[in-house]
């Protein structure tokens, strides 16, 4: 019974990981920018929702505010930080350090403005009840899964049915096309940032209701997204999403076998093992460079 409980809980967490990871993978795949500040989109979306909620806005308006905050941040990063760096042909690590700097700045600004420490949205949706003997589930379990499924269906429809979506996918699968696309790659890059960052918002809103927020939460989100993107195989959205789900489940189910303090390390053990034994991930093509 413990196993089933842990599995279900893992799926709830994993659905949220999958969403943020897919956003990161979309950006990384299409632009080859290691968007280390992706977690900040998550933080901003969460706090935007929190402020809206506390101001008495309806949930959908708050969620919209969250999506908007995440998207605007992603776009701003692309225009103000990444593009100038890429113009100098800055290395992958230059991007990494710049993004990290932004993450530090925003995290502290959020701390100054929103207060440091824990903040959560109080809603009965996160309160679990016993649905079966020994199995506790909260309404948010179904919401998380529903939101994840709907968004993935919508995203894959966009990526396969629309012109811009197909272009994005082409970029992800063949990075060399980035140059061949010439001018329009700029607009595609903005599109990727907008979409990818927006993907972090629903997970942030749900997290505000469940585990709650703090100004440093983006850090963890970022690490998980990065791990999921690698495990899933760079360039594969489906892979990243599946890997995010798997990491969430692994982190939870591991408690069946090991003591509680090891839960966090499990995700990274999985990541490390994948890199050593299957560097191409679930679906990726082997790329060593």
């Amino acid at each position: 019974m413990l196993f089933l409980q842990l599995l279900l809980q893992g799926i709830q967490t994993g659905a949220l990981y999958a969403l943020t990871a897919a956003g990161f993978a979309l950006i990384f795949g299409a632009t080859r920018i290691f968007h280390f500040a992706h977690g900040i989109s998550f933080t901003l979306a969460g706090y935007a929702f929190l402020f809206a909620w506390n101001a008495g806005w309806p949930w959908w308006a708050g969620s919209l505010a969250g999506v908007l905050a995440a998207t605007l941040f992603g776009l701003a990063m692309e225009r103000v930080v990444y593009r100038p760096i890429q113009r100098h042909e800055g290395s992958f690590f230059t991007v990494f350090v710049a993004a990290f700097g932004v993450a530090v700045v925003v995290q502290n600004l959020v701390g100054m403005l929103a207060g440091r420490g824990f903040a959560s949205v109080d809603t009965p949706l996160s309160r679990a009840t016993e649905v079966m003997p020994e199995i506790f589930l909260a309404p948010i379990f179904w919401i998380a899964i529903g939101v994840a499924v709907v968004l993935f269906v919508a995203l894959s429809a966009f990526l396969t049915r629309t012109h811009a979506g197909v272009a994005l996918r082409a970029l992800a699968q063949n990075p060399d096309l980035l140059r061949a696309y010439g001018l329009s790659s700029n607009r595609l890059s903005m599109l990727a940032f907008a979409l990818g960052s927006a993907m972090a918002a629903p997970a942030a809103v749900l997290t505000a209701m469940t585990t709650g927020l703090n100004e440093a939460i983006g850090h963890h989100v970022m690490l998980i997204s990065m791990a999921a993107t690698i495990v899933g195989g760079v360039g594969s959205l489906r892979g990243a999403a599946l890997a995010g789900l798997m990491l969430g489940v692994a982190e939870s189910v591991a408690l069946q076998f090991v003591d509680t303090q090891w839960a966090e390390a499990v995700s990274f053990l999985v990541l490390f093992a994948f890199i050593i034994f299957r560097p191409s991930g679930f679906f990726g093509v082997v790329q060593t460079r």
Binding site: F34, F92, F96, A227, I230, A265, F268, T288
Partner: peptide
Amino acid sequence: VRGEYFVAASLGLQMMATT
């Protein structure tokens, strides 16, 4: 592996080592 993959591997190593 090289590039981003190695960065991720070293991040994984770092997180495990902290634990």
